[in-house]
Design a protein around this nucleic acid. Structure first.
Length: 674
DNA sequence: GCAAGGTC
């Protein structure tokens, strides 16, 4: 008997082979793909890893040209499965192995997409060898117990589960492709400049646009606060207990009254000890929240984390899990970390007799929370790698440490019957914050005071300020909000944000929607609201659950979605002109670089017929003023002109570095990019 | 040249 085992990825294949063969598996390359061979209980095994999905859903060749079929008709074309570009070798290897084996065991991740990935592998091997006997191994961690258990209790492939993932694929493609084409064609955006629409990206962009509108329409209101400068051995300040006064006169009266007293009397002192609990283990979202606060973009942080993962320094960075699995030996891991830059931290924690890690709300089955897996020294890694490694290592330590203990003191002081209040903060025990010092609140030490004490009044000031609009979402906060709304997955959220940048829908950091981003969302909200709402995802989730349970048919989900799309397109087609012109107008606004020095027209970023970008005058051909632009790298306009020659400035940067202000006039010395 | 989801 000989059996082929199909895993989700190469790493998993290797682990599974090692476990099942007790380390005796031989690695052989077939079509450049590593395959692991061994014998076990008289059966020969070959284990291969896929690369996630190996088949891709797309429309038939004849419809790939955007003008070959109307967008609304595209939704009625059945897409077909094709081998993904990067998976050709794997498919060749699968085919070879299908001929040589009598059975196949699907051992992909135990989740919805994993089931479909397995079925894709089956599609390939069954096509070559229909007589293959098929089984499924389900394990929730790549540990010896789990994997052994799964292979001793093989089950059947769950075609309902894989169909639920397929319905997602079909719905996403139909909505995404047809609306992307529609909106791009309506606004004349072709080639690299197309505009896109999708079930996840559009609601995400809408979050940013909504927030931006809140900020823009925010009307600041003035308010006044009264602050007393006080002294009792040390100087400190206290604010009037009313907080913000909306009425200046009222504030003034309070100030006058308080100013009248030379001394204040301590009216109340409340001291409390507060426990400050250690944080839960990292899942992807929490990790990205912290990494982006350290100045990384989410995509960059993920790339660095993946790099650390493949080099054995940290565990798999794509996870929803916030509970360490029982199989993770914390003590061994700390022993290992004694060889890292954090040997003293590891030793301290090892001294705790019983390690009780914190646990978060999500116990997922596919991967553990993000934690260090190997010891690293600063010199082993580059700067970014070290920053991420340190963050992960410190978080791991924090989850094993005891709570921090804060002493919080609230003092109220009476100045001529006006009450002023201030809070002190002191750490009695830093606890976990010693290991994870990133966001430790600042201590504020107040002088010792008891009720009835006299406090010298040095002055009473009125501070004028105004209410502030809400903040923009940072990338980390946006990812957290996406997670809350069920938008995207741990593996895709950061990519979705990058996509919004790539489309020119947002710019800068934190991401700020551009006119075209706003215009696209406004057009969709008005005419195709469904796609801009997170609800579309939750509806789809419900449908998928029903398909997985066998209560609903895959075909029903696809048909319902198609009916909805048909209705959406009736409205969209009616308003095509309007939609197109409003988006075009926004795009034009985005292209303005500045004023033309020759004729007073507008200088615009333009694409030549051959696709090269340059700056030209809006009065072309009357005015032929133009400037060359670098063809590669990110471009943005600055809102000021060159000091040397008066031409507009652009912000220009290649790669990751900060953008530089450069004059667009090549003859000007301020135009040097280097 | 489309989406989102896996993985690299």
């Amino acid at each position: 008997m000989s059996i082929l085992v199909v895993c989700e990825k190469q790493n998993a294949a290797k682990r599974i082979a090692v476990i099942l063969s007790n380390g005796k598996a031989r690695e052989t390359y077939i079509h450049k793909v590593p395959v692991y061979f061994f014998e076990r209980k008289g059966t020969n095994y070959a284990v291969i890893g896929l690369r996630g999905h190996i088949l891709e859903l797309d429309y038939p060749e004849q419809y790939l040209g955007w003008h070959r079929i109307k967008p609304r008709e595209l939704t009625h074309i059945a897409p077909e499965k094709r081998v993904s570009k990067g998976a050709r070798n794997i498919v060749s290897a699968l085919k070879d192995l299908a001929r040589e084996n009598e059975g196949v065991i699907i051992a992909t991740d135990y989740d919805r997409e994993g089931e479909l990935i397995g079925v894709e592998g089956l599609d390939i091997v069954k096509d070559i060898n229909p007589r293959l006997e098929v089984k499924r191994a389900r394990f929730s961690a790549l540990t010896k117990d789990e994997v052994e258990g799964a292979f001793q209790n093989l089950v059947d492939v769950d075609y309902n589960l894989s169909a639920s993932a397929e319905s997602r694929q079909v719905v996403d493609l139909a909505w995404g492709a047809s609306l992307t084409r529609f909106i791009s064609i309506a606004s004349n955006q072709s080639g690299k400049d197309f505009l896109s629409v999708g079930r996840v990206q559009s609601p995400t962009l809408a979050l940013l646009v909504d927030r931006e509108k809140e900020i823009e329409s925010f009307e600041p209101e003035p308010y006044w606060e009264i602050e007393a400068k006080l002294e009792k051995k040390n100087k400190f300040t206290a604010k009037h207990i009313n907080g913000r006064f909306k009425d200046k006169n009222e504030a003034k009266k309070v100030q006058k009254r308080a100013e009248g007293s030379e001394n204040g009397i301590v009216a109340k002192v409340i001291k409390k000890e507060k426990k400050d609990k250690p944080p839960a283990p990292y899942n992807t979202t929490a990790f990205l929240r912290d990494a982006t606060r350290q100045g990384f973009t989410a995509a960059r942080a993920m790339a660095v984390a993946e790099d650390l993962y493949t080099n054995g320094f940290i565990s798999y960075p794509r996870t929803d899990n916030t509970v360490y699995p029982k199989s993770l030996n914390l003590r061994n891991l700390l022993e290992k970390m004694k060889n890292s830059e954090f040997s003293s931290e590891a030793s301290e924690l090892l001294a705790i007799p019983r390690l009780i890690p914190t646990r978060g709300k999500t116990l997922a089955t596919d991967h553990p929370p993000i934690h260090p897996t190997g010891a690293a020294k600063k010199k082993d890694l580059n700067r970014n790698q070290w920053k991420v490694y340190e963050l992960v290592a410190r978080r791991f330590f924090a989850t094993l440490a005891k709570p921090a203990v804060q002493e919080v003191t609230n003092v109220e002081i009476d100045l001529s019957k006006e009450i002023f209040t201030t809070n002190g903060l002191r750490f009695i025990d830093l606890g976990w914050r010693k290991y994870f010092p990133y966001y430790t609140p600042k201590e504020k030490i107040l002088p010792k005071m008891i009720e009835g004490d006299m406090v010298k009044v040095l002055g009473v000031e009125m501070i004028e300020d105004q209410t502030k609009p809400p903040n923009r979402y940072g990338q980390g906060a946006l990812i957290a909000e996406m997670e809350r709304l069920g938008l995207g997955t741990k593996s895709t959220r950061h990519e979705i944000i990058q996509k919004l940048y790539g489309r020119g829908y947002v710019k800068d950091s934190p991401p700020k929607p551009t006119p075209s981003g706003i215009a696209v969302i406004e057009a969709l909200e008005e005419h195709a609201r469904t796609i801009t709402r997170a609800r579309m995802t939750s509806t789809l989730e419900n449908d998928m659950a029903e398909v997985a349970e066998g209560k609903k048919d895959f075909v029903d989900v696809v048909n319902e979605s198609q009916e909805m799309l048909d209705k959406v397109f009736i409205i969209l087609e009616e308003n095509k002109e309007n939609i197109g012109s409003s988006i075009k107008e926004a795009l034009k606004k985005q292209r303005i670089v500045g004023e033309c020095q020759r004729c007073g027209g507008e200088l615009l970023i333009t694409r030549s017929r051959r696709g090269k970008r340059f700056v030209g005058c809006s009065n072309f051909p009357k005015c032929r003023n133009s400037y060359a632009l670098p063809q590669r790298g990110k471009l943005d306009f600055a809102d000021f002109t060159c000091e040397k020659c008066g031409a507009p400035m652009i912000k220009f940067g290649r790669g990751r570095g900060r953008k530089k202000d450069v004059c667009i006039n090549m003859k000007c010395e301020a135009s040097k990019v280097s």
